[in-house]
Computed example of a mutant assay.
Amino acid sequence: MEMQLATAETIAAIERSEVDYTEDRLLAMQEREGNPEGIELRRFGSALCLYSRTMPWPGFNTVKGLSSDDAGELDAILDFYAARGRKVQFELVPSRVDAPLLEALGDRGFIPSGHHTSMAGPPIEQPLQLPPGVVIRQAGAGDYDAYAAIHCAAFGLPASGIAPVAANNAVLHGRAGWSVWLAEVSGEPAAAAVLYEHGGVASLTFAGTMPAYRGRGLHGLLLRHRLNRAASSGCSLVAGQCAFLSASHRNMERAGLQVAYVRSTWMRRPER
């Protein structure tokens, strides 16, 4: 089965899936008692603004879903972040923005700072034969410390990050649409992956492997496992993001996903 991805409708569905899972994840964090991470979500037109008081990293202080129709909202968006003393980045989908909007960003001191690839395709059933000693299972309520340890190790974060990462992801347990999967090798947690299913779209929201277990194909196994889950759930589209030509990109291609678009990231030009 092949899917023609380069249509405005499909591109909109892929972008909407990313906005949806990001919004729902941050809402779950915001709903923790006392909102300890200081999460705020604000919409300006079609743009969703993300903010965290305790997490200054770009991923938690991002504008998603911005379109050319929102050009008149740019100053209000920038005021939202300026009032909170936070730098902001914009994630832009090529077919959703035009030259006047890009020029308006440039006039306000923003420049392209990076790119990220969105992959998509139908959830085709994948053959899945696990090597000896490898088990894939859904995470239980008591597994989020193990998940967080994988998350931190996979992305080079210090061990001090395990507790907050665990707390900010345990809120997804049992939440509608979310499933977290662990790959174990000889009983030891070795890799993890997350799936969000909503509106007929399955979003591949995270995957990571402990450095000691890389090179064993665990990323690909978890990818195919989630594709099978999406197929059995009746989803019509699978979408995920990755660095261009990364190992994740190649694994997604092997599993039948295609490049849908490459979005750009815009950040304010550094002061000299």
Rank of each mutant, 00 (worst) to 15 (best):
V259K: 12
L223D: 00
S160A: 14
P36A: 02
Q4M: 12
D75K: 01
D79I: 04
R224S: 11
D79V: 09
V259W: 08
A166V: 01
Y213S: 14
E31D: 14
R96Q: 13
V93W: 07
P189C: 00
S233E: 13
G65N: 06
F244G: 10
R42C: 12
M1V: 13
S179N: 06
K87D: 14
T7V: 03
A255F: 00
A28L: 15
K87W: 08
P123Q: 04
L92I: 09
V93S: 10
W57A: 13
A193C: 05
Q4K: 14
W266D: 00
E253R: 12
G199L: 00
I11T: 13
H225T: 08
V19G: 01
V165D: 07
L130Y: 08
W178D: 04
A202P: 04
G208V: 06
A255D: 07
D143N: 07
I136M: 02
L221P: 03
V63E: 01
D69K: 14
R16F: 07
S68I: 05
A167V: 12
P58W: 13
L92Q: 05
F110A: 04
G208E: 03
T62R: 15
L50P: 02
G72V: 05
R86A: 08
S46G: 11
V171H: 02
V171K: 04
A212L: 09
A170C: 09
G156P: 00
A149R: 15
F155G: 01
D98S: 06
A190S: 11
V262N: 10
V185K: 12
E31V: 00
Q129F: 10
R229V: 13
G142R: 07
L66K: 05
G215A: 04
Y261M: 08
A255C: 04
V262Q: 12
P189T: 03
G220Y: 06
E40N: 06
E23Y: 05
Y51F: 15
S52K: 08
G161S: 13
A231P: 05
N61G: 04
A83K: 12
L50Q: 12
A99V: 14
A247V: 11
Y213H: 15
A76E: 10
M29S: 09
F90T: 03
Q129I: 12
A176R: 14
A260F: 01
M119I: 01
W178F: 13
R216M: 13
G220A: 06
L105A: 01
F90H: 04
H225K: 11
T117Q: 14
A163N: 04
L105G: 02
G106T: 10
A231Q: 14
F44W: 07
N168H: 11
H219W: 07
H151K: 09
A149Q: 13
R254V: 11
R96N: 09
Y21H: 14
Q241Y: 09
E9P: 00
F80I: 06
G220W: 00
E37I: 07
R53E: 15
G65L: 07
V259S: 08
R16W: 09
L74V: 06
L157F: 12
K87R: 13
Y196D: 08
T117E: 10
L218Y: 06
G121I: 00
S46W: 00
S233V: 09
P100A: 04
R53T: 09
R269N: 08
D143M: 06
K64A: 10
A47I: 00
A192R: 11
Q129M: 10
V180C: 12
